[in-house]
């Protein structure tokens, strides 16, 4: 079958978008794999990161690529604070309590977003000059390409951090066996703080990148939570490579769904894929049983 130009272009755009989805999902996957908590506020953290970049851009014209770094620093702080003040009371306390605490946090962030910034969607612009790349069979637009490259670089950096640094190894050890890690002298409380900090910072980074492509409003949190969780399910919990592949799969299928079924079904497609994979293979298409591999 020969794909039409439109379909090829849609797939390419989907791949570029999928890189950002993968970055957004990586934080969720890390926190889930290591702390056994599904961060119901993950999408809302992404929204906050996007707003940091948008506000900086609107006030000073500084590119959201710099805004992304600011968002990552601030969101890391938010994650650390969240673990130290709230989640430390409920982590390892079973399922209900962390879910409800994070649900509450999502409500708070959404409300603050609406009150401070208004209910309207806002967007930023990449803010630096540059031109896209013509591949012959498809066109790579400049903002989409830059955001994709940055997202993949951040994923690679996170992977390298987990793989080669002492803290990264301690994080993976905690994911594999919390009790054994404790016996080996790893301060698992500190690991949780760092993990949630990194997870939140990655959500913020993904939000800042998305702000250059799509309008952001205070209610996007739920939809991005489901998208990122879909990626985690596709890729398997705690697998960096799986998350990347899952992100690309979701980006492409979502764009194809929008092309063939109409824009209204963009989210329906991703949710149905998600539910389908969840039901058929809950450990993920590429994943093992979790942990930091």
């Amino acid at each position: 079958m020969v794909l039409s130009d439109l379909a090829t272009q849609t797939i390419v755009n989907g791949l570029l978008l999928g890189g950002i989805y993968a970055l957004a999902a990586l934080g969720l996957s890390l926190v889930f794999g290591i702390m056994d908590i599904v961060n119901l506020a993950h999408g809302h953290m992404l929204m906050v990161g996007a707003y940091i970049a948008i506000l900086l851009f609107a006030a000073t014209g500084i590119t959201p690529l710099i805004g992304m770094l600011l968002a990552m620093v601030l969101m890391f702080g938010l994650g650390v604070l969240l673990q130290k003040v709230l989640l430390k009371h409920v982590v390892d306390e079973g399922l209900e309590q962390p879910i409800i605490v994070l649900f509450g946090l999502a409500l708070i962030l959404q409300n603050l977003g609406r009150v401070i910034l208004g209910g309207d969607a806002r967007t930023a612009d990449i803010g630096i000059p540059g031109s896209g790349i013509e591949l012959g069979f498809a066109y790579l637009s400049f903002p989409r390409t830059v955001t994709f490259v940055v997202a993949v670089l951040l994923i690679a950096a996170t992977w390298a951090f987990l793989q080669y640094t002492k803290t990264g190894q301690a994080i993976r050890a905690t994911a594999q066996n919390r009790t054994a890690a404790k016996y080996m002298g790893i301060n698992t409380d500190r690991i949780y703080v760092i993990t949630l900090g990194i997870g939140t910072a990655l959500a913020g980074a993904a939000g800042a990148l998305l702000s250059m492509l799509f309008p952001i409003d205070p209610y996007v949190g739920w939809s991005y939570l489901l998208k990122t969780f879909a990626v985690v399910v596709l890729g398997g919990v705690g697998s960096v490579l799986g998350t990347l592949v899952g992100g690309l799969v979701l980006g492409v299928s979502e764009n194809l769904g929008a092309l063939y079924l109409g824009g209204g079904y963009r989210n329906v497609v991703s949710l149905l894929i998600f539910l389908g994979v969840l039901l058929v293979k809950p450990e993920g298409l590429f994943g093992g049983s979790g942990g930091g591999e």
Partner: peptide, 23 residues
């Protein structure tokens, strides 16, 4: 689905129903 997966699965299901009904 159990545990976390059930919670997120039901959230997704409700979102699908809302989107379809809206359409």
């Amino acid at each position: 689905l159990t545990g976390h997966y059930f919670a997120i699965g039901t959230l997704a299901l409700a979102a699908v129903i809302e989107l379809i009904m809206l359409d």
